[in-house]
Structures are given as structure tokens and as C-alpha cells.
Design a protein around this nucleic acid. Structure first.
Length: 673
DNA sequence: AGCACGCCGACT
DNA sequence: GTCGGCGTGCTC
């Protein structure tokens, strides 16, 4: 009977039905919807993008299934208007739909992730000349040829190649190696092996702008076989690269988190470089984790998964087989780390005398220094000395940050900016206190204290408009000098004559009320330490802190990732935090405080009934107001990941249709970071 | 999300 | 007597 349906007595014919998921953003609207494929469109397959009539309008939709019958009567079915030139491989349709379900989003939003850039008119984008260079910044210091590998690198490559060839349980590997231990060369060798076997590779890197050196090495080694996908490319260039991958002209994709969805067929290898990097979590709906997507793709394709880091996540440390690269390829030891206890410091500014002295010594030796202060602007707080009035964002419950050069008070959460006041609007006093120090103020203090040494500020203010490269190049060419900035200074680049790294206020990340605070602090301090001493003259590290005994800071000072992770995993187990449980955050936001709270309470009730017994529901708990929206959150802690997600997904889907729950915008974050 | 259909106040 | 408010519901 398959393929045949009886339409009228004695009349049987084959029907080709396309089940189509319309590409809309609405939560309450989801398909699939059935369309009758007319003669000439029988070739349409899963993954085709169709223009279809939909509710009196036209819409784009993705074919998620081909069927031979429909629940609906044939005469009620509409026919697609056209099929777009670009189709998505069926395995990516499955991946997009899985992502939507896993992250409690909608099918349409999940499918968007696997589609190439499509114009509003429904055409696949094309670059103007067709040869748009996606890279632009070919790198220095990278060999185009394979280099001689160390013994540790060799065994790592061997283990990965075994996994590519079908290593069974050992398909997921953690490449743990300090900065400079040659992880990239291992990735390159593994990718070469995959290509030799006719398999493709995906290499995920943190934000491209901050990791040009890794990208450059892949392009130099593999040339046109590499496709590069990232958000700063024009949509046309991205579509070109996407098509080169889909058609098999390129077999290796290098890119940020979105590259986890690249159309690479016969995948043999998936690499996640700097696997601890927070940019792998998408902060918009669907809030997917590219590391989890990568793991799923690798599992489905029987590919090797390689997560590399000097500071791995506890999750990966626990679950993956470890490959160790214990030493730097240049044979140099890691730089000694000195903790400066700021509780004992009498210095009025952010710099301890000890730190200034070390900076001067370094300059005297002709070396460079990197200083990390994870706070932008001149001063993070401004208040009236007479009446104590604080200057806060009108739309968010946070204080405004003084940016002196821009002559603005700005909100770092919503972008609100206002003029710097001359007097207090409450009491008229003209003495306003600027409290604390950010990178802008530190730049001025350092330039004054170290004159005539050049000081380069590297943060998202100074690097606005793509000035990243220009600042780093000036620092590189300057001879002795200081690169000062936010966590951007800790990533990607590599200058051999950096002899001193300094972390100021290393506790800043520890003060966040977040179970990942220790993990983040350890990673940040370790990364910055790794920037120092990569040249023949060696290096040193200074960490200014108010809590030198904190496990993350003490372990980073000893370069002891294993010790830190063992302790951190013990703590997580005691508290029942990931990886020993799974967290799902549900956020509610509304213009009125009461609406957010009301909806949160109602949702909590519904969730409570739906969640499995071994899960825990926390909240509603208030969050600070953001962009004029009052916020509440619920937190689900679940032992059974699948059951927890399913309960939240069902509850949220039902809520989308319930009037009482429409008063607040809802967002779901599975595995919140 | 759009866009229709469907019942109650101020206009030619 | 009509135009129009957006509440509710549907879109293959």
C-alpha cells in the first residue's frame, strides 16, 4: 500500500507530500505543514528549501520529511511555489531539529543554524565577484609544511588517528597541553590523516578576530581545502564557503561555534580548540553549546572528537580520555608566578609597588609586558561626595561606568550613555568621587609611571572597528612596551619577547556568584601566565589578589591544572553541580515587575508537576533589571538530563499557548554558563 | 509572527 | 446606520 492512496473509487495515484517547517521565529507556530509536490517537483528531498504559500502569504520553509500520504485531504493541500537552488544535507536537517529540541527552541530556529545565508527574497547569497577572499589576514610565524613532532605530540596524533579509524569508546579525546606545547601541530597532523582517508574535518576556534594565528596555520597547510566561516565575512562570502563545503570542494572547515553546523560530509575529525572558551556557548535562542553539537556530530559520523586546552573544563576532564602534552615545544619551563597579596598593600592605586618595580625591570631588560585588568573604562563607579548619590543606568540596575576620553557615563549592559555631570543633580555638590579603576585609567597611570615606555590599551573600546590587528602589530614592533587590556590580552596571540605578565584584581571573576567562578579564574590566570616567557630570555608572572589562598589562584600559580581540577570536581560533586547534574535556567522578563514574577510563579507550578522526582526546582529568584525589563529566573537541577529537558520543553511549549503566561518574555538556557 | 474574523463605542 | 478597537484563532 505504500506509495498509493485511494483518492476516489477506482482511482489510485501516488502522492508525493513534502512536510515543511516554515522559517518563522514564533514560538507558538510550528509545523510541519504538508504540501503536495506537483509534477516536476518530485525530485524535492529532505533539506530542500521551498517557497510555499502560507496563510495568504508566502514563506520559506525547509522540507523535513517526504511522505506518500497526508492526514489532510489532498484538496486541502497547497503546492510549493518553487524550490531554492540550495539544499541542506538530510543529516544537517536532523541536527538542526535535534538542536531545537535539546535547547527547548523551535524547529525553525534550529533549522536556521544549518542553512547558508539566504537573502530576504529567498535567494542563496553570492559574493559579488565569486572569489571573495574570506581570510584577508594570512599569518606570520606558521610553517606551511609539517614540522617534526615531539614524542608526546606523536603519541597524541596516533591516538587521534586510531579514533578516526574507529576507536570505539575512545573516540572523545582531551588534548591537555600548556600554552606553547604544540596542540595546533597535533590538530594539523590529525586533519591530514583524516583527509588522507577521504574524511572531512571541522575545527572550532574561539572568536576568529582573537585567534588569527590558528586560522592562518590551517590555511597555509591545507590551502583551498580549508573553508573559513565567520560572522565578519559578508553573507555572500559565507555562502560561497558554505557551498564549497557542501559540494566537497573544501573538506576542512575552520570557524567559531556556528561552524559546528558546517556542511562537511564524511566527517572524520572534529577539533574544539581552547575547549574551555565561553564563546562556544551561544547567547541567543537557541542557546546551544557548540561543544555538545560537535560531540553529537562526531558520534553520529563515527568521527574522532578532540577537545584541546591548557585549562580544560571539569566536564571534559572527567569524561574524556586524556592525551597529555606536558612541556613546551621549545623546551622552556613555565614562568614562575608571584602572588602579591593586596590586603597588605598600602598603595592608593590599582598597582602594587612590587608590580611597578617589575614592569620597570622588564623594560630595563628590553622586554615587553602584558597587563590584564578585566574592567573597561576609567572608573566603574561615580558618586556624590556630599550626599552619596550613585549614578546608575536608568534602564538597568547597575552603576554607570565613567569613560573619560569619550566624556560619557555608559552602561556596560545596555549601551545607554549620558554626559558626564558637572554637579550632583540631587544636592548640587560639584565634588563627585570616581571610584575604582578600569583599563582607561590604568593606561594613564602606567604611561605616567613608566614614561617614556609606550603603553598600548587593548580592550573592546580601543579595538572598536576592527583595530585588533593594528594594536597588536604596534605592540609587536615597539620593542619594550606594555600591552594593557581586558581578557582580550590573554588570548590567541604569541609574542616571544614578552617577559612579564601581570594580572590585576585576579579576584574580579571570583566575586561573581556563580559556580563556575573558580574555573573561570583559573583559566584566565593560567592563560595570561602562558603569554610570558616564550622567548629565550624567559619570563615571570605577577598576580595581584585579595585572596591568594583561593584554590583557583593558588593552583594557577603552581601551573597545576590536575590539582585544581581534582579539587574542583570534588567540590562540584558535594554541591551536586555539573558535571554531576544538569542545569536548565528559565528566564522571564517583563516591563512590569509583577508580570515577570506572576508568570514565573505560574510557570514554576507547572514545572513542578512535570519534572522528574530526582530533579530540583529553585526560584523564582529576581535578577537585576536589564534594558528596562524586570527579570526573574527559575533553575532546574536534574540528574536525568533527557527527562529534565523534556519536562521543561513540554511545559514551555504549552505555556506558549496559555494566555496567563503571555505577560512575560521567556527564555530557556540548557547548560547555562 | 502575520492576518483574518468577530463583537462593542464615536462619526458621516 | 457605518468605521474600527485589538481579543482569539489559524496557517498545510
Amino acid at each position: 500500500v505504500i506509495g498509493v492512496s485511494v483518492v476516489a473509487p477506482n482511482v489510485a495515484r501516488v502522492m508525493a507530500i513534502a512536510r515543511v517547517e516554515p522559517l518563522t521565529t514564533a514560538r507558538a507556530l510550528r509545523g510541519p505543514f504538508d504540501y503536495l509536490l506537483p509534477r516536476g517537483m518530485e525530485e524535492v528531498e529532505v533539506g530542500a528549501v521551498l517557497r510555499v504559500p502560507f496563510g495568504g502569504r508566502r514563506m520559506l520553509g525547509v522540507v523535513v520529511e517526504i511522505a506518500d500520504r497526508s492526514e489532510l485531504d489532498a484538496e486541502r493541500l497547497a503546492q510549493p511555489i518553487a524550490a531554492l537552488e540550495s539544499g541542506v544535507p538530510a543529516e544537517l536537517v536532523r541536527l538542526g531539529l535535534w538542536t531545537a529540541r535539546e535547547y527547548c527552541s523551535t524547529p525553525a530556529r534550529g533549522l536556521r543554524l544549518v542553512l547558508p545565508p539566504i537573502t530576504p527574497g529567498g535567494r542563496l547569497r553570492r559574493s559579488r565577484n565569486g572569489t571573495d577572499d574570506p581570510g584577508a589576514d594570512i599569518e606570520v610565524g606558521a610553517s606551511a609544511r609539517p614540522v617534526h613532532l615531539s614524542g608526546a605530540q606523536d603519541s597524541a596524533v596516533e591516538a587521534i588517528v586510531r579514533a578516526v579509524d574507529g576507536g570505539g569508546a575512545e573516540r572523545e579525546l582531551l588534548l591537555h597541553g600548556v600554552t606553547g606545547s604544540g596542540k595546533t601541530e597535533v590538530y594539523l597532523a590529525a586533519a591530514t590523516a583524516a583527509l588522507e582517508r577521504g574524511r572531512g574535518a571541522i575545527v572550532l576556534v574561539p572568536e576568529i578576530a582573537l585567534t588569527p594565528q590558528t586560522v592562518g596555520r590551517f590555511r597555509r597547510r591545507f590551502g583551498d581545502t580549508v573553508a573559513l566561516l565567520h560572522s565578519q565575512m559578508s553573507p555572500g562570502a559565507r555562502a560561497d564557503e558554505w557551498r564549497r563545503l557542501r559540494d566537497g570542494a573544501a573538506r576542512v572547515c575552520v570557524g567559531p561555534r556556528s561552524a559546528a553546523f558546517a556542511p562537511v560530509s564524511d566527517l572524520g575529525l572534529v577539533v574544539i580548540d581552547e575547549e574551555h572558551d565561553p564563546s562556544y556557548k551561544q547567547e541567543g535562542d537557541p542557546r546551544y553549546d557548540a561543544r555538545r553539537i560537535a560531540a553529537r556530530r562526531a558520534a553520529e559520523a563515527g568521527a574522532a572528537l578532540v577537545a584541546g586546552s591548557a585549562t580544560p573544563r571539569p566536564e571534559s576532564w572527567l569524561a574524556m580520555r586524556r592525551l597529555e602534552l606536558p612541556s613546551r615545544v621549545d623546551g622552556r619551563r613555565l614562568p614562575p608566578v608571584e602572588l602579591v597579596d593586596m590586603r597588605a598593600s598600602r598603595s592608593p592605586g590599582p598597582l602594587a609597588p612590587r608590580t611597578l618595580e617589575a614592569l620597570r625591570e622588564t623594560a630595563g631588560l628590553g622586554g615587553k609586558a602584558i597587563v590584564l585588568l578585566n574592567r573597561r573604562g576609567w572608573a566603574p563607579f561615580l558618586c556624590c561626595r556630599s550626599c552619596g548619590r550613585a549614578f546608575e543606568c536608568p534602564r538597568c540596575d547597575v552603576s554607570l561606568v565613567l569613560h573619560r576620553r569619550a566624556e560619557r557615563l555608559t552602561c556596560h549592559h545596555c549601551g545607554h550613555a549620558e554626559e558626564v555631570p558637572n554637579a550632583c543633580p540631587e544636592c548640587g555638590s560639584v565634588t563627585l568621587a570616581r571610584q575604582g579603576a578600569g583599563t582607561e585609567r590604568l593606561e594613564a597611570e602606567l604611561a605616567g609611571a613608566l614614561e617614556p615606555l609606550p603603553v598600548f590599551r587593548f580592550d573592546s573600546d580601543s579595538a572598536a572597528g576592527g583595530a585588533h590587528g593594528a594594536i597588536l602589530t604596534r605592540f609587536e614592533q615597539a620593542g619594550p612596551g606594555v600591552l594593557l587590556g581586558t581578557q582580550m590580552v590573554a588570548k590567541g596571540h604569541d609574542f616571544p619577547d614578552v617577559m612579564l605578565s601581570v594580572v590585576l584584581d585576579a579576584d574580579a571573576t571570583l566575586r561573581f556568584p556563580d559556580f563556575r567562578a573558580e574555573e573561570r579564574t583559573f583559566a584566565l590566570v593560567s592563560q595570561l601566565a602562558g603569554r610570558s616567557g616564550r622567548g629565550e630570555r624567559g619570563g615571570r608572572v605577577i598576580v595581584q589578589t585579595l585572596s591568594p589562598e583561593a584554590p583557583s589562584i593558588a593552583a594557577a600559580a603552581r601551573h597545576d591544572a590536575a590539582g585544581f581540577l581534582a579539587g574542583e570536581l570534588r567540590r562540584r560533586k558535594e554541591l551536586g553541580y555539573p558535571p554531576f547534574s544538569h542545569l536548565i535556567r528559565i528566564g522571564l522578563a517583563a516591563a512590569e515587575r509583577g508580570d515577570a514574577l506572576g508568570v514565573a510563579r505560574r510557570l514554576a507550578e507547572a514545572l513542578d508537576a512535570a519534572l522528574p522526582a530526582d530533579s530540583e526546582l529553585l526560584g523564582p529568584a529576581p535578577l537585576f533589571r536589564l534594558r528596562g525589563r524586570h527579570r526573574q529566573q527559575l533553575l532546574v537541577k536534574s540528574l536525568d538530563r533527557g527527562a529534565g529537558i523534556a519536562a521543561v520543553r513540554d511545559t514551555v511549549e504549552r505555556a506558549a499557548h496559555e494566555r496567563a503566561l503571555r505577560g512575560a518574555a521567556l527564555s530557556v538556557d540548557v547548560d547555562p554558563q
